[in-house]
Protein backbone atom coordinates (compact mmCIF):
# COMPACT_ATOMS: atom_id res chain seq x y z
CA UNK A 1 0.00 0.00 0.00
CA UNK A 2 1.45 3.35 -0.99
CA UNK A 3 1.22 5.43 2.16
CA UNK A 4 1.32 9.20 1.97
CA UNK A 5 1.96 11.37 4.99
CA UNK A 6 -0.54 14.14 4.44
CA UNK A 7 0.73 17.28 6.22
CA UNK A 8 -2.76 17.89 7.56
CA UNK A 9 -4.07 14.40 8.21
CA UNK A 10 -1.02 12.23 8.88
CA UNK A 11 -0.04 8.99 7.10
CA UNK A 12 -2.90 7.72 4.98
CA UNK A 13 -3.40 4.88 2.50
CA UNK A 14 -3.30 5.44 -1.26
CA UNK A 15 -7.01 4.56 -1.44
CA UNK A 16 -7.85 7.93 0.13
CA UNK A 17 -6.20 9.84 -2.69
CA UNK A 18 -6.71 10.53 -6.38
CA UNK A 19 -3.47 10.37 -8.32
CA UNK A 20 -2.95 13.25 -10.70
CA UNK A 21 0.35 12.39 -12.26
CA UNK A 22 3.46 14.30 -13.12
CA UNK A 23 4.02 17.39 -10.96
CA UNK A 24 6.92 18.71 -13.01
CA UNK A 25 4.69 19.99 -15.80
CA UNK A 26 3.29 23.46 -15.21
CA UNK A 27 0.46 25.21 -16.92
CA UNK A 28 2.24 27.45 -19.39
CA UNK A 29 1.84 31.15 -19.93
CA UNK A 30 1.98 30.89 -23.71
CA UNK A 31 -0.01 28.81 -26.15
CA UNK A 32 3.00 27.00 -27.51
CA UNK A 33 3.63 25.15 -24.29
CA UNK A 34 0.23 23.49 -23.93
CA UNK A 35 0.94 20.35 -25.96
CA UNK A 36 3.85 19.43 -23.70
CA UNK A 37 1.91 20.39 -20.59
CA UNK A 38 -0.91 18.02 -21.45
CA UNK A 39 0.92 15.24 -23.29
CA UNK A 40 4.67 15.14 -22.72
CA UNK A 41 5.71 13.05 -19.78
CA UNK A 42 9.23 12.22 -18.63
CA UNK A 43 7.93 8.95 -17.18
CA UNK A 44 11.17 8.14 -15.35
CA UNK A 45 12.10 4.80 -13.91
CA UNK A 46 13.28 6.36 -10.71
CA UNK A 47 12.31 9.31 -8.55
CA UNK A 48 9.07 10.86 -9.69
CA UNK A 49 7.52 14.10 -8.54
CA UNK A 50 3.79 13.66 -8.69
CA UNK A 51 0.46 15.00 -7.48
CA UNK A 52 -1.77 13.17 -5.07
CA UNK A 53 -5.12 14.79 -4.28
CA UNK A 54 -6.44 13.90 -0.84
CA UNK A 55 -10.04 13.59 -2.04
CA UNK A 56 -10.95 11.16 0.75
CA UNK A 57 -9.62 13.50 3.41
CA UNK A 58 -8.74 17.17 3.64
CA UNK A 59 -8.79 17.70 -0.15
CA UNK A 60 -5.34 19.17 -0.24
CA UNK A 61 -3.32 18.55 -3.38
CA UNK A 62 0.03 17.15 -2.28
CA UNK A 63 3.33 17.01 -4.08
CA UNK A 64 4.98 13.63 -3.53
CA UNK A 65 8.46 12.38 -4.36
CA UNK A 66 8.16 8.65 -5.00
CA UNK A 67 10.35 6.07 -6.71
CA UNK A 68 8.57 4.35 -9.58
CA UNK A 69 10.57 1.11 -9.31
CA UNK A 70 10.56 0.59 -5.53
CA UNK A 71 7.44 2.65 -4.65
CA UNK A 72 9.33 4.28 -1.79
CA UNK A 73 7.83 7.63 -0.82
CA UNK A 74 10.66 9.99 0.06
CA UNK A 75 8.90 13.30 0.60
CA UNK A 76 5.39 14.71 0.80
CA UNK A 77 4.70 18.42 0.67
CA UNK A 78 2.43 21.14 -0.54
CA UNK A 79 2.38 22.50 -4.09
CA UNK A 80 4.92 25.22 -3.33
CA UNK A 81 7.47 22.78 -1.91
CA UNK A 82 10.39 21.54 -3.98
CA UNK A 83 11.51 18.17 -2.67
CA UNK A 84 14.87 17.05 -4.06
CA UNK A 85 15.57 13.46 -5.08
CA UNK A 86 18.34 11.87 -3.03
CA UNK A 87 21.74 12.13 -4.70
CA UNK A 88 22.93 8.87 -6.29
Amino acid sequence: MIQIACPYCGPRDEAEFAYRGDATVHRPAEEAGFHDYVYARANPRGWHLEWWHHTGGCRAVLKVLRHTATHEVRAVGLPADRPEPPSA
Binding site: A23, R27, H53, A60, V61, P79, A80
Partner: peptide
Amino acid sequence: AAAVLAHLEFHLQTAWP
Protein backbone atom coordinates in the same frame (compact mmCIF):
# COMPACT_ATOMS: atom_id res chain seq x y z
CA ALA B 1 -19.86 16.46 -9.96
CA ALA B 2 -16.87 14.88 -8.23
CA ALA B 3 -14.63 15.26 -11.24
CA VAL B 4 -15.45 18.95 -11.64
CA LEU B 5 -14.80 19.68 -7.97
CA ALA B 6 -11.46 17.90 -8.12
CA HIS B 7 -10.61 19.72 -11.34
CA LEU B 8 -11.34 23.11 -9.78
CA GLU B 9 -9.47 22.31 -6.56
CA PHE B 10 -6.48 21.02 -8.49
CA HIS B 11 -6.15 24.14 -10.57
CA LEU B 12 -6.69 26.46 -7.65
CA GLN B 13 -4.04 24.77 -5.53
CA THR B 14 -1.41 24.10 -8.17
CA ALA B 15 -1.84 26.43 -11.13
CA TRP B 16 -3.33 29.54 -9.49
CA PRO B 17 -2.52 29.45 -5.78
